[in-house]
């Protein structure tokens, strides 16, 4: 456990150091660079690519969270309950759409640049959050629902004080899933000229420079790892409090 914490801390420091001064790591990547080509990507600064990559993922994930949690609340209310079976199967079907295909299909409509990537990330992010929010809101024990009604809570009070807090850990799992998938999918956005770390990987693929592929890939993987871990800690803290509700 302690070892794990130390390792994570070391990785985080390494990540920060690399972003702050990539050239210092040049000797590490040099062996992978083909025929004396540059070992560190310098076309754009890695830091700015990382920031733009992360902000794109954050924007898409936040938008997806707001929309899908809202939808999930809507279809679990009595007045929206007739849409529940349909929205379940639509969410299920929607998840079969490959993210690459969503991106590819968004290009003809929205053109090149960050917009199609944002749209694709947003659309693809809706489904895991929606599904988890549904599971969370629908899996609240009937006796708890009954008690909340029985003590005289209004519909709004029940939603805000009982249902949402109880569903929160499961919703967070969905957001984590979405954020991690988006982080990886966003790299593909660079094929349609979005500014992401995918730019580094693609440059490597085109010029046969494994050093570029490696640094781009490792950066994204590390970011994904930390996002995954961060959400995991948050969920853990919440689930420990409410053990009776099982995460999906």
């Amino acid at each position: 456990m302690n070892m794990g914490v130390l390792l994570r801390l070391a990785l985080l420091l390494l990540l920060v150091a690399f972003l702050a001064n990539p050239q210092a790591f040049e000797p590490l990547f040099a062996p992978f660079a083909a025929n004396g080509a540059a070992a560190i990507y310098t076309q754009s600064s890695l830091l700015s690519l990382t920031v733009s990559h992360l902000s794109m993922v954050a924007a898409a994930t936040i938008a997806a969270t707001v929309v899908s949690v809202g939808l999930a609340i809507l279809v679990t209310r009595p007045s929206g309950r007739e849409f529940l079976p349909l929205s379940r199967s639509v969410a299920n079907i929607g998840q079969t759409f490959p993210p690459v295909a969503v991106l590819a299909l968004a290009v003809p409509v929205f053109g090149f640049g960050p917009i199609p990537t944002l749209i694709a990330l947003f659309l693809y992010g809706l489904l895991p959050i929606f599904e988890n929010a549904l599971t969370g809101l629908a899996s609240i024990p009937p006796s708890v629902q009954e008690a909340a009604r029985g003590v005289g809570m209004t519909d709004t009070q029940r939603l805000l004080r009982v249902e949402l807090p109880l569903a929160l850990p499961i919703i967070l799992t969905g957001i984590r899933l979405t954020a991690v998938i988006s982080l990886s999918t966003a790299t593909i956005g660079s094929t349609v000229a979005a500014k992401t770390l995918g730019e580094v990987i693609i440059a490597g693929l085109i010029s046969n420079n494994t050093a570029f592929v490696l640094q781009g890939g490792l950066l994204v993987a590390l970011l994904a790892l930390f996002i995954h871990e961060g959400f995991g800690l948050l969920e853990g803290a919440l689930t420990r409090r409410t053990r009776s509700v099982q995460p999906a």
Binding site: S184, I201, G216, G217, L218, A221, A224, L225, H228
Partner: peptide, 18 residues
């Protein structure tokens, strides 16, 4: 296996080339 999944697919494809 979880960590393997976090490596972006495009990078993993590329990294396997060498």
């Amino acid at each position: 296996l979880n960590i393997l999944q976090t490596i972006p697919s495009m990078a993993l494809f590329g990294l396997l080339i060498a």
